[in-house]
């Protein structure tokens, strides 16, 4: 389980992620979809306690990551497959991590076997292909047999067979009741791997829901709203995790939701509407709040 609440991270005057709130449930594979630079890796570093949020909180399995007694048992992460000292062997890299937690050498061998690295385990990582580095990263993530897995672009650089293997692996892990959160910048990849999606763009959450819901909401296009109190309406809709652009002061373009939903939010908040028009509408529409 991963719970983010109003998570914001600024580097200097650049805001990498902006008031992200989401919950990643156990037992499913949740895809984190967004273009490069959207804030996926930043979010994952924040979850892992590697970077400190500017504001907001994020809990993994009920606690901030750093407060867990046995961090590697709780969360296994692959953040950057190439982030391993090139002069060390794959096995040594895994042993250094295992030693901190008194994880047995047999478990190191086990994850090496599982990830298909047995033949390369004693070779220096500097000579690894990206695909092999990904396998090592996944081996490191699995080392503590964690309840939650966080994988940043795990299929990058893998051969088709490796991609299949990762898909099956994450499904199996989720089926065991674990939380699996993996990122990609490819919708096609996500649609084949994930059950649930969290879509991020420019540090904001654009859409959430099941893969089908997100595809539908994208297909349903945007909703145009005019209101004399557009600011308040925007704030009310933002809380539900949709994208809003504001071409002028009284107009909003809302995507990731439906006209019905916008109308209901406006009604609940007592906000007058002058216009509410779905654009590029498709017949299958669902809310995803």
């Amino acid at each position: 389980m991963i719970e983010a609440h109003e998570l914001t991270k600024r580097y200097g005057d650049k805001t990498a992620v902006h008031t992200l709130s989401f919950t990643i449930a156990p037992g499913t594979v949740t895809g984190f979809l967004g273009p490069n630079g959207a804030g996926k890796s930043t979010t994952m570093r924040l979850i892992m306690g590697l970077d400190r949020p500017t504001s907001g909180t994020v809990l993994v399995n009920g606690k901030p990551y750093g407060q867990h007694r046995s961090p590697l048992r709780e969360v296994g992460a692959l953040l950057d497959a190439k982030a391993v000292h090139p002069g060390r062997s794959a096995r040594s890299h895994l042993r250094t991590m295992a030693a901190t937690h008194h994880i047995k050498a047999s478990r190191v061998s086990e994850v090496i076997e599982m990830t298909g690295l047995a033949g390369a385990a004693t070779k220096r990582v500097g000579g690894f292909s990206l695909g092999m580095s990904q396998r090592l990263g996944i081996a490191a993530a699995l080392l503590g047999d964690p309840r939650t897995l966080i994988l940043d672009e795990p299929v990058n650089g893998l051969d088709p067979e490796g991609v299949q293997w990762v898909r099956q692996l994450v499904r199996d892990l989720a089926a065991e009741g674990r939380t699996v959160f993996l990122s990609s910048h490819l919708m096609s990849e996500m649609s084949q791997t994930a059950d649930q999606l969290l879509v991020i763009g420019r540090g904001h959450i654009i859409a959430t829901g099941s893969v089908q819901q997100v595809i539908d909401s994208v297909a349903s296009g945007a909703v145009r709203v005019r209101s004399p109190r557009a600011d308040e309406l925007a704030a009310a809709l933002t809380a539900d995790g949709v994208t809003i652009t504001s071409p002028d002061a009284s107009m909003l373009e809302v995507s990731g939701t439906t006209a019905e939903h916008v109308g209901q939010v406006a009604f609940r908040n007592g906000l007058p509407l002058y216009e509410l028009s779905p654009r590029g509408a498709s017949s299958k529409r669902r809310t995803c709040s």
Binding site: M1, H5, S21, F22, T23, I24, A25, P26, G27, T28, T30, R147, E176, G177, R178, D195, Q196, L198, I205, T208, G209, D240, G241, C288, S289
Partner: peptide, 15 residues
């Protein structure tokens, strides 16, 4: 806050 699944499966025993 948006929740991705309504009913997380209860399989903690496996983990």
């Amino acid at each position: 806050m948006s929740t991705l699944t309504d009913n997380p499966p209860m399989t903690a025993h496996a983990t």
